[in-house]
Design a protein around this nucleic acid. Structure first.
Ligand SMILES: [Mn+2]
Ligand SMILES: [Mn+2]
Ligand SMILES: [Zn+2]
Ligand SMILES: [Zn+2]
Lengths: 147, 147
DNA sequence: TCTTAGATTAAAATCATTTCAATTCTAAAA
DNA sequence: TTTTAGAATTGAAATGATTTTAATCTAAGA
């Protein structure tokens, strides 16, 4: 974790209290928070912080490869993932929770290696699955029983 | 193609000229147009058409499973795909073109079948790849040679 | 013809994100 | 330590995609 701080310093990035707080928050909240989530969580401790700072810091962290931005919510807010590791995501359309899915699938995906993308340089990959999570499924079953 | 018209009629959906035009446009423009693309393309023939009609028709078609909505552009416009077939998408970050990638990968993806999603009901799957397309790569090479 | 539900429209509203100009902070030089 | 220039932060305004609203239109049935 500390390596980010060191790393950013080496790159000449100024580590302001606001940036530190945002990094700290992301580090301990791996549940894919939105910019607003971060802003609201920090406003008690940093009442003067602006949402613009949150966005610019997220941009900075993304540009340096520390976080990933997900556009899993169609027409909704972006959310952020404090990792550079490739993995899938599942969005529950009932409770809006996002579940991480670890998988080699993406990296070993035959498409990326050969096939329809000759000549293309592939950087980022995001796979989004949509449905109803097990928790919400349980609740649905309960409700049906009560009828 | 005609089956959609028939299908929608059976479902009791009114097929207005606007809706027909939008369906027709989507049918012959499989390059993932945005709502605005559709609106602009049709405004000559239907000068009175509203962008709200485009959005509501897209919603209707999506709800009935005729089109897919892609959120591949982070913080950008949604775009639409006149197919229910599952496939990947590649977005070129230089020219903004989207390339279709056919693949069994998604359906046969081991994650979906077993693993971390027990109890979850998975509906839609979208995989987005980001990078530079072969065309844009060529241009980059040319530019470098001229230096 | 009259009625009614649904569809369309233009305009206003919403909401996430970005931009802007003014102010404040940081870090390095003097 | 003081100065200073550049970078970061702030609050507010602007932007842009999408949604909502209220009025109007249209087609089918009574
Ligand atoms: Mn994740
Ligand atoms: Mn496609
Ligand atoms: Zn759920
Ligand atoms: Zn390209």
């Amino acid at each position: 974790m500390k390596y980010i701080i060191k790393d950013l310093k080496i790159k000449g990035v100024t580590l302001t209290p606001q940036r530190m707080a945002i990094i700290e928050f992301l580090k301990s909240n791996l549940n894919h928070p939105t910019a607003e989530d971060i802003y609201k969580a920090l406003e008690e401790k940093y009442p003067s912080m602006s949402i613009a700072t949150v966005y610019s810091t997220l941009e900075l962290l993304k540009a340096n490869g520390y976080i990933q931005e997900l556009s899993i919510r169609k027409r909704g807010k972006a959310c952020f993932d404090f990792t550079s590791k490739n993995h899938h995501h599942f969005l529950c359309l009932k409770c809006d929770n996002i579940i991480d899915i670890e998988s080699e699938c993406i990296n070993t995906c035959p498409i990326v290696k050969a096939g329809q993308l000759e000549g293309c340089k592939v950087g980022e990959i995001q796979a989004y699955l949509y449905g109803v999570c097990s928790e919400c499924n349980k609740n649905t079953i309960k409700k049906n029983k009560n009828k």
